[in-house]
Design a protein around this nucleic acid. Sequence first.
DNA 1: GTCTGTATCAAACGAACGTTTGAATGTCAA
DNA 2: TTGACATTCAAACGTTCGTTTGATACAGAC
Lengths: 215, 215
Amino acid sequence: MSPDNKGTTTRERLLKVAETLFAQKGYDAVSVREITNAAHCNLAAVNYHFGNKKTLYLHMFRERWMSRAQRIRACFGENLAHCADTSPASVIKSLAEALIKGPLTDEERLRHFQLIIREMTKPTEAFEIVVEETMKPSFEGLEQLFRPCLHEGIDEERTLLNVLSIFSMVLYFNFARLPVSKIIGHAYDEPFKDRLVQHIVQFSLSGMPLKENTL
Amino acid sequence: MSPDNKGTTTRERLLKVAETLFAQKGYDAVSVREITNAAHCNLAAVNYHFGNKKTLYLHMFRERWMSRAQRIRACFGENLAHCADTSPASVIKSLAEALIKGPLTDEERLRHFQLIIREMTKPTEAFEIVVEETMKPSFEGLEQLFRPCLHEGIDEERTLLNVLSIFSMVLYFNFARLPVSKIIGHAYDEPFKDRLVQHIVQFSLSGMPLKENTL
DNA sequence: GTCTGTATCAAACGAACGTTTGAATGTCAA
DNA sequence: TTGACATTCAAACGTTCGTTTGATACAGAC
């Protein structure tokens, strides 16, 4: 047994290994044999604990991905609570920091966004759950936070477009590390993440049609 | 033979069908049999014309994807030429229109961005080519167009981050149609695309640290 | 001890995969 | 008409896939 497998059940190891492999390679490119080998268990374990490969994937998404999304949302809430106000500047900064520097390790964050990108590109049953339980509530929450600070003429759709645009940047800078690194010419280190947060906050903030007295 | 296959060679049909299927399902999820059935030719045709499945994919990317990227770049150039100046407003508008309303049909555009997202998520040999021959030149060209209009203190990295942010929005709103449609509550019709272009231009423009006299 | 249920295992299942083969076509110059 | 070449075809190749099976090990209850 490798050291990171001590004290864990076969079920937990399967979920953990499956998440890493599915994120790296995609559902179809990962075989059950590859998963069970990496989890140091028998081939039949997937069928015993989860019924089949597809159900393993869905359980992984529900039990691991969703809880991580929850941790990010909680971190956003804490960040915002530490701010003096709920101005758009505070909201965007709290959001960008939660997503880019937040509670996840670099590896976790990479996996997290790889998985959701794969779901967006080729949706499974997991996608519906994510949209309804994570994305919609998040976006509507943000929309309500921003609304009082936007000009009265701005309708809901335009507000949502603003939120989606912020989200698109966060998503892109997280999952497209490879091309971004190649284009900017250096790695994704901590100082760069700081610059990234700063950039997203500044870029998004000035991109929004704010009233003048709301920073 | 279906009507859209008249007057085409087996090779061309294979490339076309392969592109659609690879974009929809991803490389691993598409079998050679599925491709050759859809192309109305024999199973062995892939091996005869391209050697193997992987080489078919690479040829498809080189011959079809790259040429489409070229068409988009050409459209951007034409859009910009029709403008009175090369101000950031003109550049961003020309870019957003080329990418969102440009020379591609809706289907082509969907496939185009699905394919590049797949390459970003799980790079193959095709990815290196795209970065070097399409993305880098495009981004550096945009960076040079923007540079004279930005404050002197802005270094190259921040300029690139601005360009990448614009790109991230375009990319997101093209490939993530499904979640976007669900969140905004209606389809991706022509009026919405107009609103999208308008939004991206306005959002990006005010997000950039421009000198005051450059619109 | 015996029984019961949980968990793991090696081995095999049929199906689908990418690829290869060799014969059967059609085409066109000699 | 013949020969050379390009293309298509049905059939089979060996491999890997997801899944199933039946035996085995081991716990705690009675």
